[in-house]
Design a protein around this nucleic acid. Structure first.
Lengths: 128, 128
DNA sequence: CTCCCTTTACGAAGACTTTCGTATTAGCTT
DNA sequence: AAGCTAATACGAAAGTCTTCGTAAAGGGAG
């Protein structure tokens, strides 16, 4: 059984996010996406991805000349880990408080709100 | 106008959380709370609080022999900052995805769920 | 084959985080 | 005032994160 990789750092999380969105990508592809948001050097991204490979956060496919990197864990699972951690650390485990902050922090679209309602229904349904 | 303090680190956030819960506290008080969860030395907490004072994350009251530390920003605001940051960094700005992770990460009480529904109503109400 | 261009590899610097040992200071007790 | 106790101050060490410069390697064009 392979051990779980450590929690990703802030920058690593940003890279993972790109990979989850775009699928297996080369350094150049990730760098271009990141650079559009905030100036980010090529070797910086490369080094990060190499470190992330060592940590087991990503898997590297070396068949092509430009290696392709892919997340090793599903987005779902990592997000859960991060959120759970934050919940304990800053929200005293109160998920509702976190939810409220999230909702008042960014506007959610009506569709999103609907999906959240559905989720609430599901949770309350299970309770019975 | 005073500049905003930087984003707290993980350990700093833990300390802030204690201070928000307990109100202005001495190093010893914070240390005892933290130590109960995970072994934490006195001078470690002290140093952190001193650094946090420099950064402007907490305010120090030196009138008593044992100084009392208090958060400089309200919990609300800091939580918002953290969540907003996380939202951008890992959730592509999708608050609903964050909400779902939060809700499936820890069980919320029925009361909490109700409060969330109310919040949803409010948000949709404003839209009209 | 040789010259480029793009990529990966390596290493190091600088900043930051976290922890802890030790020194110093202040108050209380006697 | 002297001594004890508990607090703060200081500084250093070890680890991590982030960035970047430079070297090495690989492929394609001519």
């Amino acid at each position: 059984m392979t051990k779980d990789p450590p929690r990703p750092t802030q920058s690593e999380l940003e890279i993972l996010s790109v990979l989850w969105d775009a699928g297996p990508s080369t350094v150049r592809e990730v760098q271009r996406t990141l650079d559009a948001r905030r100036p980010t050097g090529y070797t910086t991204v490369l080094k990060l991805l190499q470190i992330m490979t060592e940590k087991g956060l990503v898997r590297r496919d070396e068949r092509e000349r430009a290696h392709r990197y892919a997340p090793r864990l599903p987005r779902e699972r990592t997000e859960q880990q991060i959120v759970g951690d934050l919940l304990d650390r800053a929200f005293g485990g109160s998920s509702s408080r976190l939810v409220m902050r999230a909702l008042s922090s960014r506007r959610a679209t009506p569709e999103e709100l609907d999906r959240i309602r559905e989720l609430l229904d599901e949770i309350e349904g299970e309770r019975r």
